[in-house]
Write a protein that binds this DNA or RNA. Structure first.
Length: 207
DNA sequence: AAGAGGATGAACT
DNA sequence: GTTCATCCTCTTG
């Protein structure tokens, strides 16, 4: 079953980021279906999080999507090359989002390999935020897409895979040195011992 | 109007 | 470990 919109409308984006571990993301792009289990996420939370694009609730053309009601995609271009996919959460006006950082492929591995031209090792196919979007055909044209429609191009499905708290590892988010103290917040979550996650962090905590 | 820099990844040495 | 690709967004003047 696709996750209901109410799942994404809740106010605690950090909890949502943890609960998305084990859920399945499915895309249908140009008639091709791919899917994968979400194994790594990060939470971003305006207004108090300096790492969030919408820090201080500043509205710009790009961050507009984050202020919409939860359950839609926020996709943006990073370093001019990588399309990074987030799930907007919270009620309208609350600029919260969960970055999907890695998935474990389920359907369409061959397509993923094609899209990830040149990558041979399966474990390197989807173990990063820019890698998995490429593999699953996600790009900035999907910004604002609803994720809770059973017939949607991108949807989040509950595969009834249970990830208990002792299977989750938390660590600080990287690449946001400009965020000062906020960079220390352990808002990156990964499934412990899952080989499809990005390379291990130096410091990690149980939750 | 111009310049700096980024929620990364790949290919180097 | 280092470098650089590549372009959009935001800030500043």
């Amino acid at each position: 079953m696709v996750l209901s919109r109410s799942f994404f409308l809740r106010p605690d984006v950090v909890t949502i980021a943890r609960e998305l571990l084990g859920k399945i993301i499915v895309t249908q792009v140009e008639g091709v279906v791919t899917s994968g289990v979400i194994v790594e996420t990060e939470a971003y939370r305006a207004p108090d999080d300096r790492g969030c694009h919408a820090f201080g609730n500043r509205k710009t053309p790009r961050t507009q999507t984050m202020f919409e009601a939860g359950g839609i995609a926020y996709v943006y271009l990073c370093y001019g090359i990588h399309h990074l996919f987030n799930i907007v959460s919270g009620e309208q006006g609350l600029a919260h989002a969960v970055l999907i950082r890695a998935v474990e492929p389920v359907l369409g591995m061959d397509i993923m390999k094609d899209r990830r031209n040149g990558i041979r090792h399966p474990l390197s196919l989807t173990n990063g935020p820019g890698k998995f979007t490429r593999a699953m055909g996600i790009n900035v044209s999907h910004d604002g897409q609803a994720l809770y429609e059973p017939s949607g191009m991108i949807k989040i499905v509950d595969g009834n895979k249970v990830i208990t708290e002792n299977q989750i590892l938390a660590s600080p988010r990287v690449g946001i040195a400009y965020a000062g103290k906020c960079a220390l917040r352990p808002w990156r979550f990964r499934v412990k011992n899952n080989p499809w996650t990005s390379k291990p962090d130096k410091v990690a905590y149980a939750i």
